[in-house]
Design a protein around this nucleic acid. Sequence first.
DNA 1: CGACCTTTTGATTGGCGTCAAAATCTGTGG
DNA 2: CCACAGATTTTGACGCCAATCAAAAGGTCG
Lengths: 254, 254
Amino acid sequence: MITKLLKDANCSSCTVRSRALFGSVDEQNVRLTQKYRDKHCYFSAGEILHREQNKIDYAFTLYSGCLILYNNLSNGDRQILRVTLPGDFVGFSRNSKGELPYSIKAVTDSRICLFFDANVLQMTSEHPEIAKRLIDLQLNDTVLCQQRLLNLGQKSSTEGLAYLIMELYSRIKVQSPKEFDFKTGETFFPLNQADMGDALGLTKVHINRIIATFKNEGLISCGHKKLKIINEERLSEIGQFDIGLIKDPFRHFS
Amino acid sequence: MITKLLKDANCSSCTVRSRALFGSVDEQNVRLTQKYRDKHCYFSAGEILHREQNKIDYAFTLYSGCLILYNNLSNGDRQILRVTLPGDFVGFSRNSKGELPYSIKAVTDSRICLFFDANVLQMTSEHPEIAKRLIDLQLNDTVLCQQRLLNLGQKSSTEGLAYLIMELYSRIKVQSPKEFDFKTGETFFPLNQADMGDALGLTKVHINRIIATFKNEGLISCGHKKLKIINEERLSEIGQFDIGLIKDPFRHFS
DNA sequence: CGACCTTTTGATTGGCGTCAAAATCTGTGG
DNA sequence: CCACAGATTTTGACGCCAATCAAAAGGTCG
């Protein structure tokens, strides 16, 4: 899928490095891992990078932009499983046939950098600290996923949406600080109302009504792909969102 | 929490080994890893092994029995995040303070074997193949968690329950084959109706009504902690459950 | 045998889905 | 710079799925 979209550039031109993957690795090792990185490529908003059940033989880090990972059901409904932001690592978890179990779509123009499987294998063997780093990234993803289970299973639609907004907003401030305008307090916000519905198992109509109440109550203001949270404390409270989840990642080795 | 419940025995007496953790490690190495294992201990049904936000400095494998990992909300509601079966590994993902973000409770009499953090650290350094195995276990857990997101977010209560039953049933057949009676087709089934409700975000009353329809339609029969699936194919279809998810785990290195 | 837990059943309520249409915004090309 | 097509947001009316409340029946275990 991705191969036909590969651009020529190799990764020596990448100026942004994968914070998530190499964050705990010292500078010398980062330079060493340079050689394991392969092609990087660009996608524009709306492009589908991968369709669930198709095979791939690489993983990648997101350099810029925003992707959603999702599953489709037979009736056409869609569940968003994860929203990835710059620095996130994507593309492990394949079955014996090499099939990745979710689809991937760019919600904004995005730039990724590929790591082919053979290179990941070699990299983790030669740099055990990177293997441990991979465990930790995976552990944290699992915790976030479990928190979303809690969100979908036990919270009301209002609580769930408050949580979703706070979680994404907090991650954007950490992972894409450039998108946050300190003058106005406005952040770029990648999801539209239909997307939020698909993340929470609600209809876009209902999402719209909840957002309307949030606006009325002076909690947020938002426009096209823009979000300003006016009362962060109250919104966190409604969503039972704990900022520690983002600021203090769950891990084991690092 | 666990320490005060520790029984004296050390792990040399363990006859069951952690299939999940050492499944891909050769016999010689398994014997080597023996030394990293610490105490093992027992819990009876209903005992709480750990309360969310408390600190621990070990992880463990479940040897026998069944545990649930869950979160409580402030209003008393509970979301079951994961049901662990023999062979499963539990207890990574802690934050900087060493806090594990979920509670753990034994739903049946259970036996676990501890690995203290220091030993896991040493073990993964000395046996890189175990580090990679840990990544894979974690990857598969994440995929299962994501499938439960799909379950909660997009499926009807009937579909969701069919999926839950099929998933647990299939995992029991693989991970606790002794619990499956080939003569009667009956399996031990650890969850009661309230638990299933807490796993799916539904009330026990509603679970009961759905189970009644499953019985009426001749799909299952069940009694106290016992389950017999009469029409496996149809139940899988209703739940949109794919047995490959269990039989062909998602992974990257092994 | 009795206390407690789990399952079962009924009646009523409300949250969110569904359907439909209008209003607004966005990006594109002339 | 405006016109237009398409996407996204907004609003309204109505219906249904699952929650809630309540109580009885059945099982399990000490």
